[in-house]
Simulated scan of single mutants.
Amino acid sequence: MKIEAKENALHAGGPLEGKTVMVVEDEAILGMMLSEELSAVGAKVVGPFPRLADGLEYCAETLPHLAVLDIDLLDSDSLPLARKLRESEIPFLFYTSRAESEDLKREFPQTPICDKMMPVDKLIGAVRRLV
């Protein structure tokens, strides 16, 4: 893990440098890993938020530049938050085990959907493309 963090630090200063990235993830270890990886490439991470209510509360005060959303959270799904972000024109992607959901693709046709089995470097690349 330390070697990966050093390698990622070499890539800091790119399109995520200084951008606030909201992480909405109910799995604590995965949320912490995403936060660390995004921080290593220069992002200012808020979260991880494990509940819809937490994410909505944050967005009531401040909007991030970008967001990474798991769909299934502790208290609900993240779709109301995704709708709020879309309405506010905040770029986001879904990072979920439900990547093949046709309903999700239908409602959010322009939103990237990344499978949780995706290697973290590919996920970081997908987040960079949101900028």
Score class of each variant (00 low, 15 high):
residue 23 V to P: 03
residue 33 M to A: 02
residue 16 L to S: 07
residue 56 L to V: 01
residue 7 E to N: 13
residue 8 N to Y: 15
residue 54 D to F: 07
residue 63 L to W: 11
residue 120 V to N: 07
residue 71 I to W: 09
residue 47 G to T: 07
residue 21 V to Q: 08
residue 92 F to I: 14
residue 87 E to V: 13
residue 64 P to C: 15
residue 72 D to E: 10
residue 83 R to V: 12
residue 19 K to F: 07
residue 110 Q to R: 12
residue 8 N to Q: 13
residue 112 P to R: 08
residue 119 P to F: 11
residue 125 G to I: 07
residue 32 M to V: 02
residue 117 M to S: 15
residue 129 R to G: 12
residue 5 A to N: 13
residue 24 V to F: 04
residue 82 A to V: 13
residue 92 F to S: 08
residue 13 G to N: 03
residue 13 G to S: 05
residue 37 E to A: 02
residue 46 V to K: 10
residue 73 L to Q: 07
residue 25 E to P: 05
residue 106 R to V: 05
residue 107 E to G: 04
residue 77 D to A: 05
residue 118 M to S: 03
residue 113 I to Q: 00
residue 42 G to A: 09
residue 97 S to P: 02
residue 23 V to S: 12
residue 55 G to F: 04
residue 45 V to W: 08
residue 40 A to R: 08
residue 90 I to N: 02
residue 67 A to M: 14
residue 68 V to M: 14
residue 14 G to C: 07
residue 85 L to I: 09
residue 80 P to K: 03
residue 46 V to S: 01
residue 20 T to C: 12
residue 130 L to F: 05
residue 14 G to W: 01
residue 85 L to W: 04
residue 125 G to L: 15
residue 76 S to R: 15
residue 14 G to V: 11
residue 11 H to I: 09
residue 13 G to E: 01
residue 81 L to E: 02
residue 71 I to A: 08
residue 43 A to K: 11
residue 83 R to T: 14
residue 27 E to Q: 09
